[in-house]
């Protein structure tokens, strides 16, 4: 589904990603871990097409398409979703209206019929029921005055509604207490399927207790320094990241 080959990217001439390689297949959950400044969040932003980052080398293909040639909205339409580390506020626009606009924009681009307000409300209610959350966030302006936990939950709700093929979660667990981490992780688990892949960027191992990744990758100095199974995450939790800096990059 996703093939990253020798990806180099940076800001203002400073290279942050320094030759990343990664393959993600449908149905898999990959965890990306690493110390602060290793390039984890940059990787997430680059995959979604944030205009600040300059790609200097390498290729990324998504479902056979050249991802780097696509605009951020085209990537969303193709089925790539990013749960933001810092979700943005939009004044005066309710969450429900925002989601409906987003969904219809995607449906229109895919040649599907747009949903009217009633149909959309029904779909939304269904999704909320599925993850067991109430509709308290729906009628408020997008992320405006939301607590940290509400913002992260809102990202997962958007994921649930937009049903992407590939979801990239950028430190969705950071700043959350343990109950909130569990609640978010459980919601994500509900949307795991054979057709959908997840890339979970995280600093801590604890969300992986609930998410059980198929693969764990450690990013260091803008490269994948080590890859392994879920036991690698536990090892990192115990030993920290320092020992990795001695090892040669893989891939």
């Amino acid at each position: 589904m996703l093939e990253i080959r020798n990806l180099h990217a940076g800001v203002d001439g400073v290279e942050i990603l320094n030759g990343v390689n990664l393959s993600v297949n449908a149905g898999e959950v990959h965890a990306i871990m690493g110390p602060n400044g290793s390039g984890k969040s940059t990787l997430a932003q680059v995959l979604a097409g944030h205009p600040t980052y300059e790609i200097t080398q390498g290729t990324v293909s998504f479902e056979g398409q050249d991802l780097l040639e696509m605009g951020p909205d085209e990537r969303a339409i193709a089925g790539l979703f990013l749960a933001f580390q810092y979700p943005v506020e939009i004044r005066g626009i309710t969450n429900g209206y925002f989601l409906q606009s987003a969904m219809n924009s995607i449906r229109k681009a895919r040649g599907q019929e747009e949903l009217d307000t009633l149909d959309f409300a029904e779909l939304l209610e269904e999704k909320l029921k599925e993850i067991g959350w109430d509709d308290s966030l729906i009628h408020r302006a997008v992320n405006e005055g939301f607590s940290g936990g509400e913002k992260k939950r809102n990202e997962i709700l958007q994921l649930a509604v937009l049903e992407p093929k590939l979801a990239v979660l950028d430190e969705t667990d950071s700043g959350l207490d343990i109950d909130a981490v569990r609640s978010v992780a459980e919601a994500v688990n509900r949307f795991r399927s054979d057709e959908r892949a997840f890339v979970v960027v995280t600093h801590y191992q604890r969300i992986l207790d609930y998410l059980t990744p198929d693969h764990v990758h450690v990013l260091s100095k803008g490269q994948v320094a080590k890859s392994g199974g879920k036991e690698l995450a536990l090892e990192l939790e115990a030993k920290g990241y320092d020992w990795l800096r001695e090892e040669a990059p893989v891939g």
């Binding site: 979604a48 097409g49 944030h50 205009p51 600040t52 605009g71 951020p72 909205d73 990537r75 969303a76 339409i77 979703f81 990013l82 933001f84 979700p87 943005v88 506020e89 939009i90 925002f98 989601l99 606009s101 987003a102 969904m103 924009s105 995607i106 681009a109 958007q158 937009l162």
Partner: peptide, 17 residues
């Protein structure tokens, strides 16, 4: 901000929308 527009685009809206 660029970040606000990017957020909307990431959800599938065109830049103008």
């Amino acid at each position: 901000g660029e970040d606000q527009i990017f957020y909307c685009q990431q959800r599938g809206l065109s830049e103008e929308d």
